[in-house]
């Protein structure tokens, strides 16, 4: 591959991720609206929000780390997208692999945590403490799932994992080969999105949206962008691990949106768990399913 092609891929992948991510945010809000028998926001609402937030006159900063935190939150995901293969574009996926991707996906959270920390607002700090606790909760089943998939495929290279699944059609998809891991992965993925019933770290009525409490203008805008990336990354990762990736853009996007629609449809039917209940839930069912699933794989 020539350097120009690679450069184009590296530019396009985050861009596509952002656009698709905005549509995913829209889908999420529309699903919420439909479940509550509302009309929901117009098609371009996520874009309006992001443009408006970035064009606010007031940009309240609590310091340099506050700024850098937002840059890291956006930048980390932009980098992570290039490790996530999409139809026709592999980016630098073979240079990192899935473990690197998982760890790269923690960089935005770390950046956000630093930024929120400098806001000197205990609501934000409590939010981050809870977010990290939630990460401890859902990453354990997620890691089991990733281990299972990578072990079954014999590689940590996402391109190869996708290729093995596509080799035999639906028969060789992760979800048919390893259904238990797929279920555990779905639960872990739901928790990692931070939506109800797992939104312990946003908790608007309790800690005033936690990490976002002191974020306004482009700071909040950066987090909105980050949310687009987060939805996209989570969905695409799941599709790559269990649903055979995508051969064409059509089925790739279809699968991604569908798989994301499952937790979304569940989310808005529930209130919120307490932190320890989230931990208990995450450490019990998906872990159990995942371990049984791994036993089948090995």
């Amino acid at each position: 591959m020539s350097a120009t092609e690679l450069l184009i891929e590296l530019t396009l992948m985050p861009l596509v991720a952002f656009v698709v991510g905005m549509m995913m945010v829209l889908m999420m809000r529309r699903i919420a609206a439909k479940l509550q028998r509302r009309v929901g926001p117009p098609f371009f609402q996520p874009l309006y929000d992001i443009v408006k937030l970035h064009s606010k006159r007031t940009q309240v900063s609590h310091g340099l780390i506050h700024d850098i935190g937002i840059v890291m939150a956006m930048g980390g995901y932009i980098a992570a997208e290039t490790l996530l293969p999409v139809p026709g574009m592999n980016g630098i996926a073979e240079k990192g692999g899935i473990i690197t991707l998982l760890y790269l996906m923690m960089i935005p959270s770390l950046g956000l945590a630093l930024g929120v920390g400098q806001c000197a607002n205990p609501n934000g700090s409590i939010g981050i403490a809870r977010a990290l606790t939630a990460m401890l909760a859902y990453d354990i089943p997620l890691v089991i799932v990733v281990f299972g998939v990578a072990y079954a495929a014999g590689t940590t290279n996402l391109i190869d994992i996708i290729a093995t699944q596509q080799a035999g059609g639906f028969e060789t998809w992760g979800v048919t080969q390893m259904p238990l891991l797929a279920i555990a992965g779905l639960i872990a993925m739901h928790a990692s999105l931070g939506k109800q019933p797992f939104e312990i770290y946003i908790a608007p009525a309790e800690i005033a949206t936690g990490p976002m409490v002191e974020m306004g203008g482009k700071y909040l805008g950066g987090l909105f962008v980050m949310q687009c990336f987060q939805l996209y990354t989570t969905a695409v990762l799941y599709v790559s691990l269990f649903l055979g990736g995508g051969t064409t853009w059509f089925d790739f996007l279809l699968k991604s949106f569908l798989v994301l629609a499952i937790p979304m449809s569940i989310a808005y039917l529930f209130p919120r768990y307490r932190t320890e209940d989230l931990l208990r839930l995450m450490w019990k069912w998906p872990v159990m399913l995942g371990l049984i699933g791994i036993a089948f794989v090995i």
Binding site: P14, M72, M74, G75, G76, Y77, I78, A79, K218, G222
Partner: peptide
């Protein structure tokens, strides 16, 4: 790539007022 990502993030962030 990570630092390129930070660069793009910074570009978006610092161009916004």
């Amino acid at each position: 790539v990570l630092f390129a990502g930070f660069g793009v993030g910074a570009l978006v962030f610092y161009s916004a007022g």
